[in-house]
Simulated scan of single mutants.
Amino acid sequence: MSVQIGNIDLGEFPLLLAPMEDVSDPPFRYVCKQNGADMMYTEFISSEGLIRDAAKSRQKLDIFEYERPIGIQIFGSDIDHMREATEIASLAGPDLMDINYGCPVKQVACRGAGASLLQDIDKMVAMTKAVVNATHLPVTVKTRLGWDDNTKNVYEVAERLQDVGIKALTIHGRTRAQMYKGVADWSLIRDIKKNPRIKIPIFGNGDIDSPEKAADWRMEFGVDGMMIGRAAIGYPWIFREIKHFFNTGQHLDKPTITERIAACSTHLQKSIEWKGPKTGIFEMRRHYSNYFKGIDHFKEFRMRLVTAGNLEEVQQILAEIDEKYAIEMA
Rank of each mutant, 00 (worst) to 15 (best):
E159F: 07
E65W: 03
Q4V: 06
F44L: 14
I257V: 15
I257W: 06
N7S: 14
V154F: 01
E21C: 10
V132C: 14
R304N: 13
N195D: 15
F292N: 00
Q107Y: 14
M179T: 07
V154S: 02
F239N: 02
A55H: 01
M226F: 13
L117S: 02
G222D: 10
P201I: 05
G173A: 09
E312G: 05
V139C: 05
D120F: 11
R302D: 08
R68P: 01
T42P: 04
Q34N: 11
K270F: 08
L118R: 06
K181F: 07
D191G: 02
I295M: 11
A326T: 15
E241A: 10
D191T: 12
D80M: 12
T86A: 13
G76W: 10
K142Q: 09
F246S: 00
V223I: 14
R218V: 00
E12D: 14
G36L: 12
V306S: 03
Y66W: 15
R176P: 03
V131A: 03
V183K: 13
A263Q: 11
R68G: 01
G280A: 06
D95S: 15
S289M: 02
D122W: 04
V314T: 09
K213W: 03
M97Y: 04
A115E: 07
R52A: 12
Q269E: 13
D62I: 11
D80E: 15
S77R: 00
R285F: 06
G146C: 10
D296H: 09
G276N: 08
G11N: 04
R29D: 03
R58G: 00
L305I: 02
L311N: 05
S2A: 13
I295F: 02
I166M: 05
H244N: 13
I8T: 02
H172I: 11
